[in-house]
């Protein structure tokens, strides 16, 4: 991973020198361990800030929306799919972008690591190949990365970027054979009361901080429905009904667009697995419309187009 970081810095310097980009979007080390933060740099001499390891779980596509400059950006598989979605939705033009593709082997679930070290504070993290070491006051422990992947990365089937101007390394093998939607399927087996209890429990700790919405590259509306007061679509209290309404409406807005990048879950301060909402819609999009978001620029998304043979069994 350290090689990746050095290569990203080199490419960024070159892009600035050649005048190909005016701004470069990447990650820098965060002020807290295992939390790399997005950074926008405007000069080649800031390139040293750029960093890469398996703690780059935020989605950089968020910072592209409606920009007018020439932009360089690093993109993993899921991030690149969000860039495609952004282009399809006219939020950015392909010609503005210089995409540095990163074949990705997944991001580390920082919560799982914190649990593994007994909730002690992690002050530093370092990666060595397939392993990583976390250090804190009076302890240092090494783990295998594959045991601590974010849940969306475990079931990821698009690790390599789908759109890029150059790749930083050789493509990595895609994961195959796993059941992507096994968790959704197990919920589908439940009866309605059990389903309701499951989801009510899932969102019960929600603070309505909207971090999931803010971290999501799909959420770029100038005014979000939750912030509007005329009309007020959803109550602003943490009444269970309001909270549930927020979560399923947020998910609906991501229908046919979500790339399962996992940024929403990663940023949730109370660890809600809100991917259970969006994943159901991803499953339906695949099942009924043979659609996975952000794979190609030539095809319009299913909610954009009408086809006479569209799925319509639910209409009586």
């Amino acid at each position: 991973m350290r090689e990746y970081a050095e290569k990203i810095r080199e490419k960024a310097r070159k892009l600035f020198a050649e005048g190909k980009v005016e701004v470069f979007i990447g990650y820098r080390k965060g002020s807290v361990a295992m939390m790399n933060q997005p950074v926008l740099i405007r000069h080649a001499d800031q390139a040293d800030l750029l960093h890469w390891d398996s703690n780059c779980g935020l989605n950089l596509c968020n910072y592209l929306t409606k920009r007018t400059e020439k932009i360089g950006i690093v993109a993993t598989g899921c991030n690149s799919r969000n860039i495609v979605t952004h282009i399809l939705e006219n939020q950015i033009k392909r010609e503005q972008l210089y995409i540095i593709g990163i074949p990705c082997t997944g991001m580390i679930d920082h919560r799982a690591v914190t649990r593994a070290v007994g909730q002690r504070e992690i002050l530093d993290v370092e990666e060595q190949g397939e392993e990583f070491t976390v250090k804190g006051s009076g302890f240092s422990q090494s783990f295998k990365k594959k045991d601590f992947l974010q849940r969306n990365c475990v079931v990821c089937t698009h690790r390599n970027p789908v759109i890029f101007d150059e790749l930083i390394a050789d493509p990595v093998p895609e994961q195959e054979g796993g059941s992507v939607f096994s968790d959704v399927e197990s919920i589908e087996q439940m009866d309605p009361e059990k389903k309701w209890a499951f989801f009510a429990q899932l969102v019960s700790r929600c603070l309505r901080c909207y971090a999931c919405r803010n971290a999501c590259p799909l959420c770029y509306c100038p005014t979000c429905f939750v912030d509007e007061s005329m009309p007020q679509w959803v109550g602003k209290s943490n009444d269970p009904t309001d909270t549930m309404t927020f979560h399923f409406l947020r998910a609906f807005h991501c229908a046919g667009r979500c790339t399962d990048c996992g940024a929403c879950e990663r940023v949730c301060p109370v660890g809600i697995s809100m991917r259970q909402f969006t994943k159901k819609l991803n499953k339906d999009a695949k099942q009924y419309f043979s659609w996975e978001a952000g794979l190609r620029l030539e095809q319009r998304p299913p909610l954009d187009v009408y086809r006479p043979d569209d799925y319509n069994e639910f209409i009586r």
């Binding site: 309701w196 209890a197 159901k280 639910f314």
Partner: peptide
């Protein structure tokens, strides 16, 4: 699909 997935009874929401 999603409303029934989160526990709405099938049949309560109908489209025509």
């Amino acid at each position: 699909g999603l409303l029934e997935h989160i526990g709405m009874e099938p049949g309560r929401l109908q489209f025509s």
